[in-house]
Design a protein around this nucleic acid. Sequence first.
DNA 1: ATAGGCGTTGAATCTACCT
DNA 2: TAGGTAGATTCAACGCCTA
Lengths: 365, 365
Amino acid sequence: MKTMTKSGAAALPLNSIVSGDCIEVMRSLPEASVDLIFADPPYNLQLKGDLHRPDNSRVDAVDDAWDKFDTFAAYDRFTREWLAAARRLLKPHGAIWVIGSYHNIFRVGAALQDAGYWILNDVVWRKSNPMPNFRGKRLTNAHETMIWASKSEGAKYTFNYEALKALNDGVQMRSDWVLPICTGHERLKDERGEKAHPTQKPQSLLHRVMVGCTKPGDVVLDPFFGTGTTGAVAKMLGRDWIGIERDAGYIKAAEARLAKVRKYDRDALVVSTSKRAEPRIPFGQLVERGLLRPGEMLVNARGKQAKVRADGTLIADDVRGSIHQVGAAIEGAPSCNGWTYWSFSRDGQKVPIDLLRQQLRAELG
Amino acid sequence: MKTMTKSGAAALPLNSIVSGDCIEVMRSLPEASVDLIFADPPYNLQLKGDLHRPDNSRVDAVDDAWDKFDTFAAYDRFTREWLAAARRLLKPHGAIWVIGSYHNIFRVGAALQDAGYWILNDVVWRKSNPMPNFRGKRLTNAHETMIWASKSEGAKYTFNYEALKALNDGVQMRSDWVLPICTGHERLKDERGEKAHPTQKPQSLLHRVMVGCTKPGDVVLDPFFGTGTTGAVAKMLGRDWIGIERDAGYIKAAEARLAKVRKYDRDALVVSTSKRAEPRIPFGQLVERGLLRPGEMLVNARGKQAKVRADGTLIADDVRGSIHQVGAAIEGAPSCNGWTYWSFSRDGQKVPIDLLRQQLRAELG
DNA sequence: ATAGGCGTTGAATCTACCT
DNA sequence: TAGGTAGATTCAACGCCTA
């Protein structure tokens, strides 16, 4: 087990499973230390006589409707407690994913919002092979819902847009994901050959979440670890992980599973990055470096010209300013990306100035 | 207008639009008199500044006053009030459908449960042509969520299993519905040619709801009638309808629309049955699904290798990109079909990756 | 007539960094 | 902390026009 200390606080039990109640365990861990939380909370509503129910004595005295409300209230209390403990653990730029079905997801979503999380998307896991509805009384329950939320409104968060776009054949990733349920060899079995966990999630689901929302080396926490799908995918992808689980049987199964997981090659973990991640090159540097001469003319797509000045600004008619400002002024647009807007002439050809930027980036390593 | 009296109570304003606040109007109508409620309440989007497309055009956002609430608490109060008034109107065997997005649906769902409704399914409307995410900061918001609930736990409800199965090519209807958004001729325009309502729902959506959950002659109420999609589909299908709307402009547009609707005029219902194209399988899905492992090598016919990365891109020498891009680069060709170009090794055999795609297609049916 | 190009549009919580 | 500016970013469908 690798551990980490943060300014003298309790150690973070990286790459291990902590046995116990997730609320208590989370409260004992150092705050602002986790990059991503993936949570698959229970939603069987079997909280009667279980934890977090303050007053059992009243149960038999009330009618069904009241009891129903009381059950929801108990579930809400449980939800709000673990969500608060989880939020404390998140770094300011961290994020959470929660998965659920119509039984619980509405209560979880409302509690998330009330706790100060900021919902970024809800994502539908569309199961390609769901269990049919045998009685024909309802629609086939063919999906589950995930909520992706940042720690607070306006907070930064990790989103590997280009990587997910690449995963989706070059088209931006949508909020509905078609993936099969966990079956076959991936599904863990116990000694009797029965499924080890009733709701084991497919690794493909976690793969997409982590490729999209974490960086290599990030810390991923799963407070309802179960048989450890989150840990398995995190390990494969070179992320650190922490699992919390109170069922000894699940822990045992997860530990056996995780021991067998291999991390992918380092260069296989690299995912496509966007232009945003590349070093910024001021336009003036092209002039300084002699890639463009002061006095040289740039043109836009319609042939409109602007003259390059020694300080890296442009002048066209009465407008002067940065490549972006002059482009925006000509277009009457609120903004403009000058790098793609302007071209220059070389050997009678119009060449976008962005090419010079790329050239400079390559030189600068 | 056809009216109905129920044991001396106030008349039910069948097949007409009632002008006014939906909570007040619903409170004035006779209880237990409606079979189905379809509600498209304000989403409380909380939009801030303008949004521009990459081509600098401005997105015409939903900035109407009716969608603005000061706090979640205010939105909750509103939601709980209209849900309570609606529940009073429902017959004991009636049902409700509510549609929303992640901004509001979790609050609506929790309020439904607290009010005593019993959720039967949540249904995902997967939009075949959603608006993209222009800034690349989140996932494309490609779906909305509908909740289907009976009046109370254990209550009977109408569900036309066979009819929906027939609508779905003889296969049990699932909880995810792929339908296009409302565009083209179906989209109502005002005198200036602008969209008459910012959030008009497609008739195909209401068609499926009513075919599945009502009988001919049932009374369908829509408390947020807008430009009357619910009424139009109800009329076509021979159901009685009641609309409540407080905006005079929407009422006028809806009345003009409804006057033109013919009962049983199936052709008017543009159910875009997009030809079931072969499901597109992104190469990345082979990686997510574990059919190929990040770090694994692919080879072309001449033995040239490329390494698979976690996001479904390849890397070979200095070239990185999709299976098609890397293939094209190696060949010096303008394009390349990566599916037939690349193979992988299994048990010492070279196997084309297209075989894995076919395998996946078969699974996804 | 028909194919193809071009412009428009849709329930959207849509930036990052430096001063 | 607020303000200013660099500069990154889109998919499917429909209607209109031209070849």
